[in-house]
C-alpha cells in the first residue's frame, strides 16, 4: 500500500535519512523502531509531506506522492498523527474533531465518523466542550487519534503514541489501535520507542539506526532476535 524507496533527507548539512526503504502491505500494522535520532520521526514527516527528501520516493496506492504538499497527501487518505500530539490547544475538543474532518463535505459522513470516534474513545464525548489544551496527555493522544480518524483515512501513521502518557492509558490506547486496525481494516505505520509494545501489536517491523534500515522482518521473529533484544528490548530472557 505504501512503498518508501531510497529516502534521503537532510537538515542542512546533517543527514537524517540515508537511503531508507520499506513496504507496508494493506491492512497490516507495521512498526518502525529505533533509538533517539535514528530517523523515525523524520521518515514519517517526509512521507506526510512536511519535509522534502533530497532523494528517493514515496509511493502510496500506486501513486508517486513524493512531491505533493501535505494537505494533498491527507486528501489521498494518508493521515499522520504527529509526535507530541499537536492538538489545537485553544480549540475545543469538538472543534478539533471538526478540523479532522476538514476535507469532508458530506455532513452525514462526518456525523458517522464522530459516532465512530466516540465509540472508540468515549472520554472525548464527555470532554466535548473542553479546551483541548486542558486535557491530560492521554486524553490529548486520544483526541489526536480521534481527529485523524474523523477524516476517514485508509492509512494511519502514529508517532510515539505512548510518549508522556500514564502507563494504564498506554495499554488502552494500544488496544484501541489494534481494534481500529481489525475492525476498519485500517493500515497502520507505528513509530514507537517502546519496542516491546510495538513488536507485540505489529505484524512486521523495521529497525532504524542512524538513518538506515538495519534489520527487518516479522515482529514475532524480531522479538526473539538476541541482538535486537540486547539493544532495544532491555535484554533479558526470551519471554
Amino acid at each position: 500500500m505504501l512503498t518508501v524507496s531510497d529516502l534521503h533527507v537532510s537538515y542542512g548539512a546533517i543527514n537524517a535519512l540515508s537511503g531508507v526503504s520499506f513496504t507496508i502491505p494493506q491492512g497490516a500494522i507495521v512498526t518502525l523502531i529505533g533509538g533517539n535520532g535514528a530517523g523515525k520521526t523524520t521518515t514519517l514527516r517526509t512521507i506526510s509531506g512536511l519535509l522534502r527528501p533530497r532523494r528517493g520516493s514515496v509511493t502510496f496506492r500506486g501513486e508517486d506522492i513524493t512531491a505533493l504538499p501535505a494537505h494533498a497527501i491527507v486528501a489521498r487518505g494518508l493521515c499522520h498523527v504527529p509526535e507530541g500530539r499537536m492538538v489545537f490547544a485553544n480549540l475545543s475538543v469538538d472543534e478539533n474533531l471538526a478540523m479532522g474532518a476538514y476535507l469532508l463535505r458530506d455532513r452525514e459522513r462526518i456525523a458517522r465518523n464522530r459516532e465512530f470516534v466516540f465509540g472508540i474513545f468515549p472520554r472525548l464525548k464527555e470532554r466535548l466542550r473542553q479546551t483541548a489544551g486542558t486535557l491530560s496527555g492521554g486524553e490529548q493522544q486520544m483526541l489526536a487519534i480521534g481527529r485523524a480518524l474523523m477524516g476517514d483515512p485508509a492509512f494511519l501513521m502514529l508517532d510515539e503514541p505512548s510518549l508522556g502518557i500514564a502507563p494504564r492509558l498506554i495499554a488502552t490506547i494500544f488496544e484501541k489501535i489494534v481494534e481500529i486496525n481489525r475492525t476498519q481494516g485500517l493500515t497502520i505505520l507505528l513509530v514507537e520507542q517502546n519496542a516491546n509494545l510495538a513488536l507485540e501489536v505489529s505484524a512486521g517491523a523495521y529497525v532504524l539506526e542512524t538513518g538506515r534500515v538495519v534489520m527487518q522482518g516479522p515482529s514475532a521473529q524480531l522479538r526473539d532476535d538476541p541482538q535486537l533484544r540486547a539493544t532495544y528490548l532491555g535484554g533479558g530472557p526470551v519471554g
Binding site: 491527507v74 499537536m86 480549540l91 478540523m99 476538514y102
Partner: peptide, 24 residues
C-alpha cells in the same frame, strides 16, 4: 465558519493544520 476555524488552527499550529488537510 470552516475557514475561520482553519484560520485559528493555522494560527495555533501550522503543521498540525497541514496534517488535517488544510492548505495553509
Amino acid at each position: 465558519t470552516r475557514i475561520g476555524t482553519a484560520m485559528r488552527a493555522v494560527s495555533l499550529n501550522p503543521n498540525a493544520a497541514r496534517l488535517v488537510g488544510v492548505n495553509n
